[in-house]
Amino acid sequence: MTKDVKLSNVKGLLIFLVVLGHLLLIVRGGMESLIILIYSFHMPAFIFLNGYFAKNVNWKKILNLLVLYIIFQSFYAVITYITHYGEVFSFRFTTPIFHLWYLVSLSCFYAVAIILNKIGKFRIGSIFIVVVILIMSVGIRWWTTGFLMEHPTISGQFLSLQRTFVFSPFFLLGFYINKETMGKLSNFLGTFKWKVFLSSLLIFIVIYTLSRNPLQFENAFYGFLQSSAFADSVSQLLKVEFQQYIVALLMIAIIFMLVNNRENILTKWGDNSLVIFLFHPVFFFVIRMHATDFLHWNIFVKLAFVVCISILVCSFLVAISRYIRWLLYPVDNILEFQEMKNKELLKEEV
């Protein structure tokens, strides 16, 4: 299948924002508005693309993600303990560390995609499943608030259930958009004559909306916090969630307007987004150990620092990706090893 350079560039920009967003959490002071803006759309956009590319996903891919989760959950348990981010004694496979919730949620998304494909995407059974998921995506955080109060020993990030439901509408949207429609939307947004003006206007609307209640939206955008962190009533929850989805969709549209289809550094980052995603927190945890050093830095120096570090981290991980890419496909490696072993046994028998 021919590579879509524009989509690779979009992925490249998004993975850069993932790295930047995490580093901004370290130097946080004065950066709250930028953090909220990034968190409003970077993972929804990624998950939207996951849905678009999940048309022919299979169970082996899900198994690979789960094995990756087990490997990197163990790896980051050690890293976070060494860097004093968490206690090794609280380590559980049921509570994803830092960014690894994405692997668990993506496995769930892919499982749903396989089921919908098997039933038929537009059959009544599939539509029923989609409606149930959408209803749960709206109400999961309200229900979780009461549930966690009754079961305080259970983490709000248990198996990434809340995030999975909260972000599922974006996956389903991408999943139900076909290649032709995606191409038309991408071309329309990319060639829009007034895209700079429209993008500026939309960004202003987004920033204005978020600035009215920054902490409320920040807590909502993380996806794993229950409704008590940003809403006092069902009506307020629905209002915040509606705004959350609209802001994310507007920002996704802006990304597709501004990103071009020419190969550049974003293309390389996008093609290696999984490598960057899995390994960049190593740098985050190390830099975070020196967080107090940044407290008195000027806001512009902080921003320049995290942007430069983000570029260096993405570029470095791409440069070494050829040496570590094999780590991304543990299931394939196991099957390949088994196949080689079987061939050797056959040779010995002969």
Rank of each mutant, 00 (worst) to 15 (best):
Y323Q: 11
N264I: 07
T267H: 01
P281D: 05
F316E: 04
R322Y: 15
R325P: 07
L266N: 08
W297F: 10
A319N: 02
F285P: 01
N261V: 08
V275Q: 05
I254G: 02
D293G: 11
F300Q: 14
R325M: 11
D271F: 06
I320G: 00
F284N: 01
V282Y: 06
F256L: 00
L278H: 03
V286N: 14
L258Q: 07
C308S: 15
I309W: 15
P281S: 06
A319M: 13
I311C: 10
V318Y: 06
L303E: 09
H290M: 10
I324H: 04
G270E: 09
N264H: 02
I276W: 10
L328E: 09
I309P: 11
V318I: 00
S315L: 08
N264G: 01
A291P: 02
K302E: 07
I309G: 07
L303C: 03
L258V: 13
A291Q: 15
M251P: 04
N264M: 06
G270Y: 04
N298P: 05
V286A: 08
L266P: 04
E263W: 06
C314D: 01
R288L: 06
R325E: 12
M251G: 06
L250K: 06
L274F: 02
V286W: 03
S273Q: 07
I309S: 06
A304I: 14
I265V: 08
I311N: 02
F316R: 08
T267Q: 08
M251L: 10
L312Q: 09
M251E: 09
L312T: 15
M251I: 01
V275N: 04
S310D: 00
L295M: 14
V301T: 14
I324W: 08
W269F: 13
F316C: 08
F316P: 06
L312V: 15
I320P: 07
K268G: 03
F305H: 04
I252R: 13
A291W: 15
T267P: 00
S315Q: 11
L295I: 12
G270N: 01
L250A: 11
L250M: 12
R288G: 14
L250E: 11
V286G: 07
C308M: 14
V307P: 13
D271I: 13
I252G: 02
V306C: 09
V318Q: 05
S310M: 04
S315G: 14
H290W: 15
V307F: 00
L317M: 10
W269M: 03
V282T: 15
F285C: 06
I299W: 13
V318N: 14
L295S: 02
F294Q: 05
S310T: 05
I324N: 08
R262F: 00
H280W: 10
W269R: 02
A291R: 14
N272M: 01
H280P: 00
F283W: 13
R325A: 14
A253Q: 07
M289P: 04
F284E: 03
D271R: 10
I254V: 09
L258R: 03
V306G: 08
V318M: 07
I287M: 11
L312M: 13
